[in-house]
Amino acid sequence: MNKEENIIVGISIGDLNGIGGEIILKTFADSRVLDFCTPVIFASVKTMTFLKNHFNINVNLNGIKHTDQILHKKINVLNVWNEPVKIEFGKEDLKIGAYAIKSLEKATQALKNDKIDVLVTAPINKHNIQSDTFKFPGHTNYLAQELEGNSLMLMIANDLRVGLITDHVPVKDIATHITPELIVEKIETVYNSLKRDFRVNKPKIAVLGINPHNGDNGVIGSEDDDILRPTLKAIKDSGKLVFGPYAADSFFGSNNYTNFDAIIASYHDQGLIPFKTLSFGKGVNYTAGLNKIRTSPDHGTAFEIAGKNEADNSSFKEAVYKAIEIFKNRKEYKAITQNPLKFNQKKI
């Protein structure tokens, strides 16, 4: 097929005992999705056939051994393994975790080699993926090693975008992780992503404080005054529209978040609790800052409903759409920056 005619979406299968297979198949059961992207699921035809029969999802699967066999208008399944896999929905299983990593590694390799255009990852179980050869707390950390750039977890839902200074860090260690260098790096990553990936010409970014009430002048902690405020001032003085720190407890409830193109939280729950409260089921986890595009749904494996045909695929479908949108935005941004005069003349 002509690679330019359709964006190739690589998909890692995630935890087979979770809802990943179900939401993938439900998404591509809508044949209209195949009009603007070509899916490649990194798993096995045997496994995907079992899942489609279990959930009674009427789809045709095109089994392939190599990416040069990808067919347009088909749900391609690249056979990463051939042996039967014992799926026990809702069960945490180290063997299933190993299959999740096999899928992720093959999909990532294809992404690095430009055999696929974007990567959408189904949810994994962060415990059963650990091994002697894979010691990462999640997708983001692994992809940060494998792909070029500075990775940042950016949660997106329409115009709501929430990034993190620290992500999978224990609460007791957060303050020691936040340094001026890290703050600058994360803000720079979000700023560049807004311009390149989301077509925001002059990004306006809010940053949330580290301590309750931004430390209350040192009464509840000095990190906001000693580290965050002076760093943000230096960034703002350089010309970027960066504001804060804002007290996190009232920032979302007051709707102040609607005044910004992105919000950067100091730590995981500070940003993700309000994000998921506002957008759960429709949000997308995007790994900003890398030279390749990766998205995922905003939820986990959902073992409690796995295998029951109750999973909502809205977030996964949105992750597919968002990956395609960002791919197109990056392509346009590259064209503009490489030849701005030609682009401006075309607009006129």
Rank of each mutant, 00 (worst) to 15 (best):
L16M: 15
I336C: 05
F280M: 09
I187K: 06
V118P: 08
R199S: 14
H177D: 02
H168R: 05
T301V: 13
I87Y: 05
I13D: 01
V9F: 06
V85E: 03
G215V: 09
T27Y: 06
C37P: 02
A110E: 09
K328A: 07
K334F: 12
L228H: 04
P245S: 08
P203W: 03
G289F: 08
Y333H: 13
A98F: 14
V190M: 04
G283A: 09
P297H: 10
D249K: 09
I64W: 06
I324C: 10
D237S: 14
G221L: 09
P274A: 06
I210Y: 11
I64M: 07
K186V: 01
N201L: 13
I264F: 04
H54I: 02
F260S: 04
S314K: 11
D30K: 14
I64E: 08
T176E: 15
V184P: 02
V207P: 00
V171H: 12
L232D: 01
A110K: 00
I273C: 07
L194N: 00
L78C: 12
L194H: 03
N141A: 15
N113V: 03
K135A: 13
N79E: 12
D224C: 10
S315C: 04
I273H: 01
G281M: 03
D173N: 15
D167L: 05
N125H: 12
V33R: 14
T337F: 06
T166H: 07
N256Y: 03
A100Q: 04
I326R: 08
K342Q: 15
N339C: 09
S44D: 04
V59P: 00
L154M: 11
K202T: 14
V120F: 08
G18K: 02
I348C: 11
F252K: 01
V77F: 04
G163H: 09
S222Y: 12
C37E: 06
I75K: 07
R229T: 08
Y142R: 11
K102V: 00
L278M: 14
A110N: 11
I220W: 13
G271C: 07
K347M: 15
V200R: 11
L194Y: 02
V284Q: 04
K112M: 13
T166A: 09
L34A: 07
D30S: 08
K322C: 12
K135G: 05
H168T: 01
N82Q: 13
V171F: 14
I336F: 15
K115T: 04
K186P: 05
K172M: 10
A98D: 13
V77T: 05
I11K: 02
